[in-house]
Write a protein that binds this DNA or RNA. Structure first.
Length: 223
DNA sequence: GCGACAG
DNA sequence: ATCTTGTCGC
């Protein structure tokens, strides 16, 4: 798919925060989201020393079968700093999306969207840069407070930061810890959770994320 | 000053 | 994220 070239990449925390402040106004949470989500792209990155492998796996949501997969080798573009995580792996993920021959209906990011201190997590950033609907699915909380969801699969509770609902803690399997779903771009929280549940028929994490995780690790090991 | 802190 | 052994549970 077509994605504009990335601008010069920030080097310091100060510069990265300036980019977030400038781009967060581009997040669209009011336009209607995808009419129907038939395909999703799972994105994940594996690291080793100073190398990384980014994987993009497009899945057919109904059949949970792989439609296309891409791997990109690169080097971290930024150190890991809570809140600035996107600057670390975004370049490699964008390149992976560029090489895709199909355009997924929704991006499933390994991290958060609005559930971010500045309301501009990886899912928002990726959504704005690609113009595609995007959501964030994290394994642990970054910001906000939440009550423990009910014990059954499908149970959820809102994650709130101050008086804002920034996401949901969603129990995707009975007996496992909840995952954290938040909106990134051109999607609503309801849809985000519905799709996430469709992608977790058997495991805690979305099948898209699991596939991308396996692929990125395999590619890194084989390099 | 003391924690908390996506991956 | 990654480093790591055994261990509890289905």
């Amino acid at each position: 798919m077509e994605i504009p070239d990335l601008p010069s990449w920030p080097t310091t925390v100060r510069e990265a925060e300036a980019v977030q402040d400038r781009l967060r106004s581009c997040v669209d949470l009011t336009s209607p989201g995808p009419e129907s989500v038939r395909t999703v792209a799972g994105l994940d990155v594996a690291y080793a020393e100073d190398r990384l492998a980014a994987a993009v796996v497009v899945l057919d949501v109904d059949r949970l079968e792989v439609v296309e997969e891409i791997v990109v080798r690169d080097r971290p573009s930024f150190p890991y700093v809570p809140g600035l995580f996107a600057f670390r792996e975004l370049p490699a993920l964008i390149e992976g999306l560029r090489r895709l021959s199909v355009t997924p209906d929704l991006l499933i990011c390994d991290g958060h969207g609005l559930a971010h201190p500045k309301r501009f997590g990886l899912a928002c950033h990726l959504g704005v840069l690609t113009g595609l609907p995007a959501i964030g699915v994290g394994k642990t909380r970054l910001v906000g407070a939440y009550d423990e969801p009910g014990a059954d699969r499908g149970s959820w509770s809102n994650v709130t930061d101050g008086d804002e609902v920034v996401g949901r803690a969603l129990r995707t399997q009975t007996g496992v810890r909840p995952i954290f779903v938040s909106v990134g771009h051109l999607t609503d929280l309801e849809t985000a959770c519905e799709v996430t549940l469709r992608l977790t028929p058997r495991y805690r994490l979305p099948e898209s994320t699991r596939r991308a995780d396996r692929l990125s690790r395999r590619a890194l090991a084989a390099s």
